[in-house]
Amino acid sequence: MLEVRSLSASAAGVDVVRSVDLTIGAGEVHVLFGPNGSGKSSLLKAIMGLSPYEVTGGDIRLFGHDVSGHAPDERAALGVGMAFQSPPNLQGVSVRSLADALGADDRLDEALTMLDLPGFDRRQVSVGFSGGEVKRWEVAKLHLQAPRLLLLDEPDSGVDLEHVAAVAVAIDRLVRDPGDGAAPRSALVVSHTGSVIEGLEVDVGHLMVGGRLLHTGDPITLFDHIRTNGYVAPEPATTTS
């Protein structure tokens, strides 16, 4: 589904992703841990093809296609979607009009109900949303897109205790229950908390520090390790870079 090979990327002349290797197979859920500023969002945005991230080395393959030079919409068309950590405010653009433009008007009510966002169809996208509402909307948005590969950038941060379960359920449904007998979906989830690994069946965990993936392994063991030792690679390191 996703193959990232020796990927390096920079933003505004700063190297933010350094020779990262990452492979996510069909139906796999990976979680990405790392301290603030370690390059997690940069990696996801580089995969999505967003500015100002420039690939300076290596390559990204989505569903077998080398996507270098592909605009974000072309990547989305291949089947990748992203829940943004901090999406922009789209003044005047209603949630409903975006769903319309996506041809997903018929799925909107269900998606908003699942994320407990009643009446949000008339709201302007992200405008005045609370921190937790932003996150829940981003997951609802992925339900409208129904991508095969989900990039979720901190879908749980700022979400209250009651809704964090709803977010996990919604993500789980997106991944495990694609419907119509479609192939299972995959996800790469950035998280600082344990809520994602508690609420979701996660297959693989990664640790990113300083733009590099320092460790890849069992997500629960990794999370426990980070909790006790901080963001340092466990020994023996199964480094991938």
């Binding site: 093809g49 967003l50 500015s51 605009a71 919409d73 992203m82 789209l90």
Partner: peptide, 12 residues
Amino acid sequence: IEKLEYLMATGL
């Protein structure tokens, strides 16, 4: 550009 790309990332 951030707004444009946000929407493009949805597939538009």
